[in-house]
């Protein structure tokens, strides 16, 4: 079924890009070192949907998640530099106030699970195929 290829070379550190895959937005973020450290340092007991950061990334510093809030399906804010990122520096869903952290895990708010990680493979160092 449908796949999307993304050229990740123009994405600078700290920048994020949204691509369409199977009709839904996918967030591709080039994480900073602080974001990765913060994600790794979170104790699992604090998470509503516990998952280690390592289990959610294939290759640092790239985080790729489906940008659809797991509550009722809005697109969370946090991709643009002008967007608010919520209390955990990740993403914030304006519809009902779900906060996601730098590993796109749900930290606060009504969403039940983390932003899903789609299947993806690195074709080269500068290109990823999602799906």
């Amino acid at each position: 079924m449908a796949s999307t290829e993304v050229d990740i070379s123009p994405i600078a550190v700290g920048q994020a890009v949204t691509v369409m895959w199977r009709g839904k937005p996918v967030f591709v973020r080039h994480r900073t070192a602080e974001e990765i450290t913060a994600a790794r340092a979170t104790p699992l007991g604090e998470l509503k949907d516990p998952a280690t950061d390592q289990s959610r990334v294939t290759r640092d510093p790239w985080l790729i998640v489906v940008g659809v809030c797991t509550h009722l399906g809005c697109v969370p804010l946090g991709q643009k530099s002008t967007d608010t990122r919520g209390d955990y520096s990740g993403w914030f869903c304006p519809c009902h106030g779900s906060h996601y952290d730098t590993s796109a895990r749900i930290r606060k708010g009504p969403a039940p699970t983390n932003l899903p990680v789609p299947e993806y493979t690195f074709l080269t160092d500068s290109s990823v195929r999602i799906g």
Binding site: T18, M20, G23, V75, P94
Partner: peptide
């Protein structure tokens, strides 16, 4: 627009 959620649905 599937990529832009309105501020108040």
């Amino acid at each position: 627009n599937p990529l832009v959620t309105p501020t108040h649905i």
